[in-house]
Computed example of a mutant assay.
Amino acid sequence: MTSTLKQQLQEDLTAAIRARDELRSGTIRLTLTAITKEEVAGTTARELSDAEVLQVITREAKKRREAAEAFELGGRPESAQREREEGVLLAEYLPKQLTDEELSTIVTAAVAEAKASGAEGPRAMGAVMKIVNPKVSGLAEGGRVAALVKQALAG
């Protein structure tokens, strides 16, 4: 059973090739390769679920953001621009990210919950992250979440 997200990617790849959209076809091709690599990793080959395919796409999008920053620092703005464009393209397949306000509300509630169970100060980071992560999984980047939790615990 093919995951519907993977199927969507394959259909979009076919459409991009037909439309001669080099950026879209190249990006989707690389993403499908990453998905296939994940499927054959380990002792037995398996079909990824939509949630696992989403994780792969999220990881690929993060790679694009980091590469864009590296190219920018390295004085290669045209390469950085391409990486950003690929990241935007991959974002189309990801769920809408939480706004700073939405994320802040979730973190504040989690900090209060952790304090109620006796965890306070910087050492409570792990307890708060355990509460926050399941709620924001796939909707906010881990680094962003961790920074907000640190800020909430320090303040």
Rank of each mutant, 00 (worst) to 15 (best):
T105N: 13
E92W: 03
R18H: 10
V88Y: 10
V107Q: 09
L89M: 14
R65G: 04
E60G: 09
E60A: 14
L103M: 03
E39D: 00
G126C: 02
E72H: 11
V40N: 08
I57W: 08
L48F: 08
I35N: 06
L89R: 11
E66L: 14
A45W: 02
R24N: 01
A110L: 08
I35E: 04
D100P: 08
G75A: 11
A91R: 12
E78M: 06
A70N: 10
E102L: 07
T99R: 12
D12H: 15
E113Q: 12
A91N: 12
A70M: 13
I106W: 07
L54I: 02
L54P: 08
E83Q: 15
K63D: 11
T14R: 04
E78Q: 06
A34W: 01
T31K: 06
F71P: 07
E120S: 14
S104T: 09
E72G: 10
E83A: 15
P122E: 10
E85G: 05
A51S: 13
T43V: 11
I106T: 05
Q55K: 15
K115G: 02
A80R: 08
A116F: 02
K63F: 07
L54H: 11
L98P: 05
E101Q: 15
S79E: 13
V88L: 14
E120R: 13
L32N: 02
G87T: 01
D12A: 14
V40H: 12
A114Q: 02
T27H: 06
A45S: 06
Y93R: 10
I17Q: 14
E113N: 08
A15S: 11
Q97R: 13
A91E: 15
R76M: 09
V88F: 11
R24D: 01
V53M: 14
D50G: 15
Q97Y: 01
R82G: 02
G87M: 05
A34T: 02
E83D: 12
V56C: 12
E92Y: 08
G87N: 08
T14S: 07
E72S: 14
A110N: 09
E66V: 05
